[in-house]
């Protein structure tokens, strides 16, 4: 049986914890709003780019650009975008689970963004070849170094394909861990909507127009495809960041609610104990008095 003092001490510490989680919830909520807006604003650009390039890939001649076909090697490169900080629910765990359960061919090597990704993959004894620190909020210029690294690797021919694992942002309470193929150019899903479905409805291979390329197909692709890779990675990071702040907000809200419930239970117990002690004392006094009479 805990004493009233023990309970008082626990109430105090739970109160402190609730205060901290509440503050973190508010901070996350503010960041969440911004990250969500950024993610949803950028989506149409990335989606349209993907849609156009997938359509062009279908109509392009074989071997016009290395990004349209698989590399010669048999290795697979995976870029994992996780968070730097914890306390965001099962976000990173789910992402890593998804990565592990995805069937990837050949030898798999990893590139990471975010400390949690590097830590998690190291724990699973995976081959890690690079880790990029990306600040929050993310700047487009920072993504260039990641994009360039990945493209150099792919162009070297060692890798068959490149995938990106990240959390797709659907809404504040739902995020979907996804693994998407970025190279060779492939339909990708951003924000849960499969952009390829629309494309396949809109453009049938037979009714694709015969495009004229200016100045030439190879030149256009050479300019546009690196932009596409960088832009898509940027959008994926935005999705991951929106998911991160949303899940942290939700996790902290749950923590605050739990702490409040706990406070309620504890104070009930405290009051019961206090009342029991008072009743006991009263009993003692009355018995003592009766004994004297």
């Amino acid at each position: 049986m805990p004493s009233t003092r023990d309970i008082r001490r626990r109430i105090k510490s739970v109160k402190n914890t609730a205060q901290i989680t509440k503050a973190m919830q508010l901070v996350a909520a503010a960041k969440m709003k911004k990250a969500q807006d950024q993610a949803s604003n950028g989506r149409s650009y990335a989606e349209l780019m993907n849609k156009i390039l997938v359509a062009l890939k279908e109509s392009a001649e074989e071997g016009i650009h290395p990004y349209f076909s698989e590399g010669k090697g048999n290795k697979t490169l995976v870029l994992v975008i996780a968070t730097d900080k914890g306390l965001c629910g099962a976000l990173n765990t789910n992402l890593l689970k998804k990565v592990v359960s995805t069937n990837l061919e050949g030898e798999v090597e990893f590139v990471t963004i975010g400390r949690k990704a590097a830590q998690g993959l190291a724990r699973l004894r995976k081959t890690l070849i690079a880790d990029f620190p990306i600040k929050d909020p993310v700047k487009f210029a920072e993504v260039h170094s990641v994009g360039k690294f990945i493209q150099d690797k792919f162009r070297s021919g060692e890798y068959k394909s490149v995938y990106v694992a990240f959390n797709n942002f659907i809404n504040t309470v739902t995020t979907i861990p996804s693994v998407e193929q970025i190279l060779p150019v492939n339909p990708v899903t951003l924000g849960g909507k499969r952009s390829f479905d629309e494309t396949s409805k809109e453009v049938d291979a037979s009714e694709l127009p015969q495009y004229t390329f200016e100045p030439g197909a190879a030149t256009v692709f050479e300019t546009v495809l690196p932009q596409y890779v960088n832009g898509t990675i940027y959008q994926m990071i935005l999705e991951a960041r929106a998911s991160e702040h949303s899940s942290r907000m939700v996790a902290m809200k749950n923590a605050t609610d739990n702490a409040k419930q706990m406070l309620k239970d504890l104070s009930l117990e405290y009051n019961k104990l206090r009342q029991a002690a008072i009743t006991n004392e009263l009993l003692e006094i009355t018995t003592a008095k009766m004994a004297l009479e």
Binding site: P209, Q210, Y211, T212, F213, E214, P215, V220, T223
Partner: peptide
Amino acid sequence: PGAEGEIGILPAHAPLVTT
């Protein structure tokens, strides 16, 4: 402003991809 100078585009333009 296209890759090879200014291009004017009117409805029913031939399919074109450029930078």
